[in-house]
Amino acid sequence: MVNGQVVLITGASRGIGREIALTFARNGAKVVVNYSGSEGKAQAVVDEIIADGGEAIKIKANVSKEEEVKAMVKETIKTFGSLDVLVNNAGITRDNLLMRMSEADFDDVIDINLKGVFLCTKAVTRQMMKQKSGRIINVSSVVGVSGNPGQANYVSAKAGVIGLTKTTAKELAARNILVNAIAPGFISTDMTDKLTEEQREQMLALIPLNKLGEAKDVANVALFLASEQSNYITGQTIQVDGGMVM
């Protein structure tokens, strides 16, 4: 489905990003595993892909720093000769009730989860415009649609990503660059492991399919959005949430 395509995945050392990297590699893509802090884990993803007969490299970059993002995109193109798919997945949480949320906690989450998407998108656009094709897949969250107590910063960023997805889709449609978002619900990862038992139970009660999602459920949708099977879809947000928000 994505055989021979070059895919850059931000925040790919863990969780959903890791699963997206492995899924694309299994389907023949050349994968760039971006990471910010977890070098060992990023290397493990690269090693796993290579052991499986695939192609991958890791590149360190903080997605909220324009210079680092530009250098990452440059290195990707230098290494693999093109850039066909960008998956904006990098994200952090700094949960707290609004009344207790510090300005720094708000800024940090907006910087990585929203500004990071803007910077990475901007950096790859030139190459994709030249190629007259490209796919940008933004990992938002279902809470960006529904809201969620304790996540004012995260929800603001994820809702922002949905708006950014729509605008980017409209601006780049004329150059055959398709831009969509995925809004995962409650997916079992390191990030959701941090939630309290109470939060977890409350959320499960809200999921019609009555179970957590797996990272591969999200990765499969990312694969679809990068493939020819989604040629007529742009500007959309696809919820992968077991029916949690309708």
């Binding site: 030139r126 415009m129 030249k130 601006e171 780049l172 004329a174 150059r175």
Partner: peptide, 11 residues
């Protein structure tokens, strides 16, 4: 030229 054309041209 539209705005995108100009951006592309500059590139």
């Amino acid at each position: 030229a539209d705005s995108l054309d100009v951006v592309e041209l500059v590139m």
